[in-house]
Design a protein around this nucleic acid. Structure first.
Lengths: 222, 222
DNA sequence: AACTATATTTTGAATTATCAAAAGGATGTG
DNA sequence: CACATCCTTTTGATAATTCAAAATATAGTT
């Protein structure tokens, strides 16, 4: 039976694997991401392997099977449609919906999710700019780059804010760093670890490297 | 910690207790309602008693404490607001929302529930006519009577359809037996175990005793 | 009061998910 | 190559929820 613990492991494996594609995900990394001690992750991964959701190579790491990836995409879909729904329909703040969706994603039926998706007019991205997989498990893969990779003068649009910490999201919102917002890179100072950008041709904002890395933009010629 | 199992037990104890108020709820009854073997219910009730949610008198039965009743009302509120939301906002059929709400009631936060309640304009009854407790744990107690208790000629309004089986609810909907519908009792035949009613001064429907007992109406002079 | 039927509790075991701590491998440095 | 370090796996325990079956209590009937 697919418990919500299993869904969480599979989702996390998928997410972690995206960071360093094509390589096996080491157990330590998974354990850290799941906030469990390594032994717990090992035990769990064995049952995941028994269910055919992951391929497990002892002492080197794991990789999702096709089935595992499909499950991950379904969970991700539920999560992201829910986030959209909570923001668009119920009017929650985008900084707080991640937590809510984290619980609800294991409780909504496909039928309810389908209704939400329909009511939202089948959104392709959630409020943070993350792509929403289709019901059939297909996900848009767009090449995005962090602000830290842009050159001065480069004009583009914010596509994604890659953090789910409410505090950071509130900061981002207050400063207009939202998906869809036009942005031009003014200056990048490697030494000062700072990035200065202009938003909507108006406000100027300066970010440190850590924050700038979380703001992803579409790669376009500029 | 309050698990969803605990919430389910407490909710069920409350519901069962409503049937035969002021008496202790016997363990066998609870076990049957929860679809567990008696031993399971006994074990669980002991932990509920330890948490101060129920008073447990071995070999006679149980009763909710004040805290237990408050918890029951909160769970019931979540369940019923959710049912309303699923019908009114997401357009699900009233026959299918019970099941959905059964899962979701353990996953929605107070914040999300409050938004739903607001969006629905603070409904007092769910789609089946069951009263929705307030956030503070107050519930409307209205004296309702089943169709089987009416006398010929009595005109009133359907207040509640007391069953959650989708098949029965679908039957009820198809025949116009919905909360709010005006109804007049035409004939009651004890021997035939049948009740004949006229709906909205138009359609006539005949029900057997079992079905008629599930249709509750407001007690008014008539 | 004795017997029988029914209800309740106890006992023992299984499952899932977790941790802590011990043990075992792999890797890099001198 | 030997050692230290880091990572991973194993082992033993715990908590929550459940079942099956045995043991026990209660109530009703004769």
């Amino acid at each position: 039976m697919i418990t919500s613990t299993i869904e969480n492991y599979i989702k996390q494996i998928y997410l972690q694997q995206q960071e360093n594609k094509s390589k096996l995900l080491p157990m330590g990394r998974l354990a850290a991401a799941m906030h469990v001690v390594p032994g717990t992750a090992t035990a769990m991964v064995k049952t995941l392997a028994d269910s055919g959701l992951v391929e497990y190579e002892p002492r080197s790491g794991i990789r999702l099977t096709h089935g595992g990836e499909q499950l991950a995409l379904h969970v991700l879909r539920r999560h992201r449609v829910l986030e959209s729904f909570l923001v668009e329909v119920l009017g929650l703040d985008w900084s707080e919906v991640h937590e809510e969706a984290e619980t609800l994603e294991h409780a909504v039926s496909d039928k309810v999710l389908e209704r939400m998706d329909l009511l939202l007019n089948r959104p392709q991205f959630d409020p943070h700019g993350d792509p929403i997989p289709t019901a059939k498990g297909q996900i848009k893969k767009i090449r995005l780059v962090p602000l830290t990779d842009l050159k001065p003068g480069h004009a583009t649009i914010i596509a994604r804010v890659a953090d789910q910490d409410p505090a950071f999201l509130q900061f981002a919102e207050k400063n207009g760093l939202l998906p869809g917002v036009a942005l031009t890179l003014i200056e990048r100072d490697e030494q000062a670890d700072s990035v200065q950008v202009r938003l909507q041709e108006k406000i100027t904002v300066t970010l440190g490297g850590k924050a700038a890395e979380k703001i992803l933009v579409r790669m376009a010629t500029g």
